[in-house]
Each structure stands twice: as structure tokens, then as C-alpha cells.
Write a protein that binds this DNA or RNA. Structure first.
Lengths: 116, 116
DNA sequence: CCACTACATCACGATATAGTAATACTCAAG
DNA sequence: CTTGAGTATTACTATATCGTGATGTAGTGG
């Protein structure tokens, strides 16, 4: 669809509904437990039991957070027998985390004991 | 379908404390009101009264959210007489929002394809 | 000094979400 | 069919935070 000729200097404005959707996505990433799960999945799919061990979270908690991540479209799963293998379905999520990490490192460059 | 692990590009690991800090930053961006404020500031500094009008939020609410944004280092302010002019102090924040918006649009078009 | 404006902060009720423990579901083996 | 393992879901409590209204504070003009 052709756009009307305009300076096009400013970026597209988001409606309130759009803002709400964006906020919701950020919210999904605003929990350490979910970030932990995403990081555990960063190197490939894992089944739930493995995630429980990798993260140290309880079973119910892991399941709940995986559900939230899945509803947000950030991870997906495949079932195989008794196991459920989860994997990151949207690699852009990792880019977001990287950007945020980069900013953090920048801010805490002197106090970088939290990074390795 | 599961995807293969990433090309082993990310070697940096976050400690629990680091995760907590990243999560906190995402949380700051997880409120529509704050995103609204950031968008209003995208075009340049604004004083509080202008932000109140631009966003439609109440005065106390605007002040509180600006405080949160400032504590997160995303905005800063300069005082001039009775007015307080706020401005975005970290342009990377806008990149984050853009990335998230891009993902939203992407998901939206993907989903709408399922609606025949 | 007084009053007014612009903004910040406090106190509070309402809502949302994390974590936990218990329970329910599902599949595979025997 | 029964059992048990692996996950999902539910019910619940505790905590956090939003939005609001009231109050506090700092500049400015009369």
C-alpha cells in the first residue's frame, strides 16, 4: 500500500493497544526465572527435568513459566514420550536480551563482578 | 520444530544477580504508561506539564513513572525555574523498543496468516 | 511575606503475579 | 489394567506495584 508523501521523519506512533502489547512482551522478560530458562535453552532444546536442574527452580514453577514463555511465542515445545522438549522459537528474543545486557555492562563497567 | 543451537556466539553468562538486574530493566519497560512517556520524549525533552497532556496520565502518576525511569537511568532531567525538563538519556532504550515492536509486527503478520 | 505554580512524595486500596504444595493428566512399560 | 514417571494445572498465600488523592516542597511574582 502506497504511503502518502510525508517527511517520514518521525517513527510510527503506537496506539494504546500497541503499547499494551509491547509492554506485555517486556513483562514476560522481566522475571529472573524466565530469563534463566531462556538462557538454559539458548544452547538448544531441553526437557523439563533438565531445566529444573539447570535452573534450580521447582517443577511447578518451571512449568508455569514455560507456559508463559510459550504463550508469548518465545519458546515452543515438542513432546516425545513422557518428555516435553522446549526450545526457543524466536531467536530475536536473545537479541533483545543481548542489547539489554550490553547496556547493563556499559552502566556497570566498573562493577562488572556480576558478569563473566 | 526444534532448531539447532546457536552458532556458539554467546559465551557470556550471567550470574543470578546479573539476571536480576536485567529483569529489572525489562520490568521498567513493561508498563504502558512508561512506554508512553518514553515515546513522548522521543522527539525531545518535555516538561512535566506537557507530558501530562501528551499522555493523559495524572500528575502524580507521571511524576512517579518519571522517577522510575530516571532511577533506571533511561531518562534524566534538567530543572529550569519551576519546570523540570525530562529527556531520554539512553538512546539504546529506543532500540530495544524498536526491536520489540518489530517482533510484534512480525508475530502479528504470522498470526494473521492463520486467519485465512 | 504571601500566594501561586510546577512538581515530588506519601498513604492507601485494588489488582496482579511469584512461589509452593497438592492434585490431575498423559504416556509407556509390564 | 495398573503403576509410576514426567508434566501440567489448581488453590493458596505473600508480595509488589499501579493509580489516585492528599500533602509536601521549591521556585516566582506581587
Amino acid at each position: 500500500m502506497p504511503r502518502p508523501a510525508r517527511p517520514a521523519k518521525r517513527k510510527k506512533k503506537l496506539s494504546d493497544r500497541g503499547l499494551q502489547l509491547v509492554a506485555r512482551r517486556f513483562k514476560v522478560l522481566s522475571e529472573p526465572a524466565r530469563l534463566k530458562l531462556l538462557m538454559a535453552l539458548e544452547q538448544g532444546e531441553q526437557h523439563v527435568s533438565a531445566l529444573i536442574e539447570l535452573t534450580g527452580l521447582t517443577q511447578g514453577n518451571v512449568s508455569k513459566h514455560l507456559g508463559i514463555l510459550m504463550e508469548a511465542g518465545m519458546v515452543d515445545r515438542r513432546k516425545q514420550g513422557l518428555n516435553a522438549f522446549y526450545f526457543i522459537s524466536d531467536q530475536q528474543i536473545l537479541d533483545l536480551c543481548d542489547l539489554m545486557c550490553a547496556k547493563l555492562e556499559q552502566d556497570f563497567s566498573k562493577n562488572s563482578a556480576h558478569f563473566r
